[in-house]
Simulated assay, not measured.
Amino acid sequence: MLREVDVVSRWGGEEFAFALPGCTPADAREVLDRLRGRMPDGLTCSFGVAAWVPEESPAETMVRADRALYRAKAAGRDRVCE
């Protein structure tokens, strides 16, 4: 479901980080919604999306992604938020 250029890495206990080069936030949402739809029965997943901008550090981008992830969880889980 991912391209060869995409990177997935474990970010913590049950968290993973996805790097989707060249994807707009809308493109990323489509990819992540497809992944959500492929979860085995009874399992859900939530995603936070943040596009890197040159004015910020990678750490700042990850903070925005983490905040978006927690918005997804707070909104009922099993969704993608920016």
Results as ranks from 00 to 15, higher is better:
2 L>S: 13
3 R>F: 13
3 R>Y: 12
4 E>D: 15
6 D>S: 04
9 S>Q: 11
10 R>V: 02
11 W>S: 11
11 W>Y: 15
13 G>L: 05
13 G>K: 07
14 E>P: 00
15 E>W: 00
15 E>C: 01
15 E>V: 01
15 E>F: 01
16 F>G: 08
16 F>N: 06
17 A>E: 11
17 A>T: 13
18 F>I: 00
18 F>M: 05
19 A>V: 14
19 A>H: 12
20 L>D: 00
20 L>A: 06
21 P>K: 01
22 G>E: 06
24 T>E: 10
29 R>C: 13
29 R>A: 15
30 E>W: 12
30 E>C: 11
36 R>V: 03
36 R>S: 06
38 R>S: 14
38 R>T: 15
40 P>F: 11
41 D>A: 15
41 D>P: 12
41 D>Y: 11
41 D>M: 12
41 D>Q: 13
42 G>Q: 02
43 L>F: 12
43 L>R: 15
46 S>P: 02
47 F>H: 01
47 F>T: 04
48 G>R: 05
48 G>L: 00
49 V>M: 08
49 V>A: 03
49 V>T: 10
50 A>N: 07
52 W>I: 06
52 W>S: 04
52 W>M: 07
53 V>L: 13
53 V>W: 09
53 V>R: 14
54 P>C: 02
55 E>F: 10
57 S>G: 11
57 S>R: 14
58 P>T: 04
58 P>D: 03
58 P>A: 09
58 P>L: 07
58 P>Q: 05
61 T>N: 10
61 T>S: 10
63 V>N: 03
63 V>M: 02
63 V>H: 00
64 R>K: 07
64 R>E: 05
64 R>I: 05
65 A>Y: 06
65 A>G: 06
66 D>I: 09
67 R>S: 10
68 A>W: 08
68 A>T: 08
69 L>Q: 03
69 L>M: 01
71 R>N: 13
71 R>F: 11
76 G>N: 04
76 G>T: 02
78 D>M: 08
78 D>G: 06
81 C>N: 09
